[in-house]
């Protein structure tokens, strides 16, 4: 069929036909999507390429995209230029505690909001949601003063203990939304069987909301891995630095000329665990974002 009946019933020229227009639109979409993908990946490739260059080649003009020779040593040199192994241990320690605290507390709180009726529940839940909008700068200084009064500045405590108190309203919200989709009948059956609250929670709810837990886990991991202001404010001794803080001081002040090949190696190493985690848990990550984004 070379011509198509138009909406008005008259014949259309070939360039007016739907199929042609679809093809054109599709081609444009392809071009734009691919161009966008290139724009997004080029900086990333540039980072990889710079990280494998010898120091003198970093500033070469025109730029070399394929490093020659490939300097795998940059990674070792950058890593050993400062006690990064120690920084990594500190970061992993903070993440381990923070992650477990956050997961435990947020699921428990979300369970309360999702399954139990009590006076003031809706008001409290709205308050919880509105704290999502609260800028962190307002609470930053008094929170610091609380930890200072407790004598816990320059310890890891301020970075992890808050997690026990479910400090991610976003995570509670996500878990609650997910729990609401679980049929109540399952828990009612368990009540008949004589299961008490904690048993129902642990044996019925938790296994059923695993995808949401994984999503929260990924987000929390990302939040701790990205956190820079917290360690910057609370940690003083270099032996307690996290990766981000270490890199910040490794970068040097404004006056110094940074060692770009080393810094790019550090950037790559910083990105690697998160990228791996993302590829493993991509589904949960996207699902989590979707649930919270749509029903907010």
């Amino acid at each position: 069929m070379s011509t198509v009946q138009g909406a008005a019933g008259g014949k259309l020229a070939w360039w007016e036909s739907r199929r042609t227009r679809d093809t054109i639109l599709r081609s444009i979409s392809y071009v734009v999507v691919i161009a966008g993908a290139v724009v997004l990946t080029v900086p990333f490739l540039w980072m990889l390429s710079s990280s494998l260059k010898p120091a003198h080649a970093v500033f070469a003009s025109p730029p070399e995209w394929i490093p020659d020779p490939v300097m795998w040593r940059n990674y070792v040199d950058a890593w050993t230029a400062m006690p990064f192994t120690r920084f990594l241990i500190n970061t992993v320690f903070i993440i381990a505690l923070g992650l477990s605290g956050e997961l435990l507390s947020c699921t428990v709180v979300a369970y309360g909001f999702a399954r139990y009726r009590f006076p003031g529940r809706n008001v409290l839940f709205i308050i919880l949601l509105s704290t999502m909008m609260l800028p962190y700068v307002v609470t930053l200084i008094p929170t610091f003063l609380i930890w200072r009064t407790l004598g816990l500045i320059n310890t890891f405590d301020p970075l992890v203990i808050g997690a026990i108190f479910a400090w991610g309203p976003f995570h509670i919200f996500l878990l609650r939304q997910f729990m609401l989709t679980v049929p109540v009948e399952m828990e009612e059956a368990a009540i008949v069987d004589g299961a008490h609250t904690m048993q129902r929670f642990a044996y019925i709810m938790i296994p059923l909301i695993r995808p949401a837990l994984l999503a929260v886990g990924v987000f929390t991991f990302q939040a701790f891995w990205n956190d820079f202001l917290g360690p910057l404010i609370y940690l003083n001794d270099m032996s307690k630095y996290t990766m981000n803080l270490g890199i910040y001081f490794f970068m040097g002040g404004p006056a110094e000329a940074p060692q770009w090949h080393w810094l790019m190696a550090m950037s790559t190493m910083l990105a690697l665990p998160v990228l791996v985690l993302f590829f493993l848990a991509q589904r949960y990550f996207i699902e989590g974002l979707t649930v919270t984004g749509l029903k907010g």
Partner: peptide, 12 residues
């Protein structure tokens, strides 16, 4: 219900 949301309430 109140017992379950206690951690958040205290944190808040």
């Amino acid at each position: 219900g109140y017992a379950l949301i206690t951690p958040w309430l205290v944190g808040f």
